[in-house]
Simulated scan of single mutants.
Amino acid sequence: ALLTAESRGSTGPIKNEKIAQAIAECKRLKLTVLPPDINKSGRDFTIENGTLIRFGLSAIKNVGDAAIRNILENRDKGDFNSFEDFCGRADLGTINKKTIESLIKAGAMDTFGNRASLLSSYADIVDNVNKKKKQTSQGQESLFGETEEREVKVSVKQIDDFSSHEKLAFEKEFLGFYLTSHPQMSNLIALKSIVSHGLEFLEEEKEGERVTVGGIVETMRKIFTKKTGAEMAFITIGDEKGITIECVIFPKVYERHKSLINKDSLVILEGRLDTKNDRPVIIAESISTMRQSAS
């Protein structure tokens, strides 16, 4: 219920983080959250086999309510037994190529084959199915029920799948966070012995509290101050649970440490908490890498 409420209650990065926090709580309670599945997922998060939680289709990027309704209505008549079967039964006007690509990349169609094969073939299969449906609707069939043009069967071409890192990148893009693992999981776990606080606990701390935190740089925005024209940055760091926090790096600190601040790099920040707004922000005073902190 909490996961469904979070997936409906907000949008964008805030929605993704709230879902990630709810999933982290599920994992803490030893509850398994299963990835999306075209034959098993409902619109929202659902309970499966009493103790498992299945990811909902509505939480996948580019998958709207109309597409979900059509998927579920067709699935009520029986599971989709192949990608070709899915395309043949679905309304491809409602479920367009962008939606199908998102479902594939999010892992919702893994039951039909590997993602690289599906992505390399889906456009041709969709075009072929649309052509066949158009011919049928126009009555272009012979007395024997065969189309006037010789039917060309198009199926999924088997090629090598993406690497695990590439599939995790798809998870991040289309689910909004890493669900099954994290590309830097071992480093993020090692951070726990260095930091003073996990990111999920910062909201409990008071204004001005000194903290040491670590995470992956997910976003970075650089600006020049109006007064002196000096460069500074706003970054967002995230952990393996999908929880993030914004960090403000003023010019003097940025000048000393800017070589360490790159998207997807792992950093450790020391600073103080600013809790005056809705969400805490870290005012960075020092930035380092794991190697520097260990030495």
Rank of each mutant, 00 (worst) to 15 (best):
K192V: 03
Q135K: 13
S181I: 02
L103G: 00
I189N: 12
S102R: 13
E146G: 04
E151Q: 15
Y122W: 00
D110W: 01
F162M: 09
D161A: 12
K133D: 04
G145P: 02
L175W: 11
I189S: 10
N130G: 03
K105H: 11
M185N: 12
D161Y: 10
K157P: 04
E149C: 03
D161M: 09
R150F: 14
L168P: 03
F144D: 15
D124V: 05
A116D: 08
A108H: 01
N187R: 07
E200N: 12
G113P: 06
V129H: 05
N130W: 00
H197Q: 14
S193V: 13
S121K: 03
K133M: 10
L119H: 01
L175E: 03
S196L: 04
V129R: 11
E173P: 02
G145I: 02
E200V: 03
I159M: 05
K172P: 07
V156K: 08
S186L: 09
E149Y: 05
A169S: 15
Q158K: 14
L118C: 00
A190T: 08
Y178H: 10
R150N: 14
G145A: 07
K157H: 12
S164F: 09
S164R: 15
V154D: 02
S142R: 14
F112L: 05
E171L: 06
F201M: 06
V156S: 06
F201Y: 11
V152K: 10
I125V: 14
L175N: 12
L143C: 05
E203D: 12
L103V: 06
E146Y: 12
I189F: 08
